[in-house]
Simulated assay, not measured.
Amino acid sequence: MMEGGIVKKRLPKEMKDFVVRKRDGFPAYQLSSLVDDRFFGVDLVVRGEDLWASTVAQYYLAVRLGREFVATGFYHHALLMAKEGKKLSKSAGDTSIQYLRKQGWKKKDVYTMIARMMGVADEPADWEELWGLLNESI
């Protein structure tokens, strides 16, 4: 876990030659994620710490394309684990925020759940408050 602020990193070895376009011609994860975040105006990206290398690669790609994440905050949390010790993953069918929202959860409920998982007792009303609480707990 890193303190808030600007972090300067080189591309990790595993991302030295990351894929931008797949064999089928479609954009690979690094590019499509970058484009989605920019298109939708995402200003806070919360990911598991296992995706740190992807974040660095996407940031590198954004700079190369002249589309820096100037106003975007990134937070990499400890992995959330299932009882069996396996990491929770949307791609493996584990519960997603979208699923919770369809079940009637409000944004505040989701923020509170995230805060609890990170060991924070407060109930944040929005992502800015959650971000502040998470940074205080680091």
Rank of each mutant, 00 (worst) to 15 (best):
M81Q: 13
M81R: 14
Y111M: 05
D36N: 03
L100T: 00
S32E: 09
M117S: 01
A82F: 13
Y111F: 14
D109C: 06
Q58C: 07
Y111S: 03
F39S: 03
K107W: 14
Y59R: 13
D37K: 01
L31K: 02
K90F: 05
A82C: 15
K90W: 01
M118H: 10
L51A: 11
G73D: 13
V120M: 04
S91N: 06
A92D: 13
H77C: 12
L51C: 08
L88H: 06
M117F: 11
S91H: 00
E49H: 05
M81G: 04
K83L: 15
Y60T: 12
F26E: 12
V110R: 05
G73C: 10
V63G: 00
A78C: 05
R67D: 03
G85H: 09
I97C: 12
L79P: 08
R38D: 00
G104M: 10
G104D: 10
V120E: 01
M117W: 03
K108S: 12
Q103G: 11
A57I: 07
L88C: 05
F40D: 09
A28R: 06
A121D: 11
V45F: 07
D94G: 04
Q103T: 09
W52L: 13
V45I: 15
A62T: 02
A53Q: 09
Y111W: 11
V120Q: 02
Y60P: 01
K108G: 03
Y99D: 15
L51I: 02
K87G: 06
Q58A: 07
V70D: 12
G25A: 10
S89N: 03
F26P: 02
K106G: 11
A53L: 00
R116W: 05
S89P: 05
L34N: 01
R116E: 07
A115K: 06
D43K: 13
A71N: 15
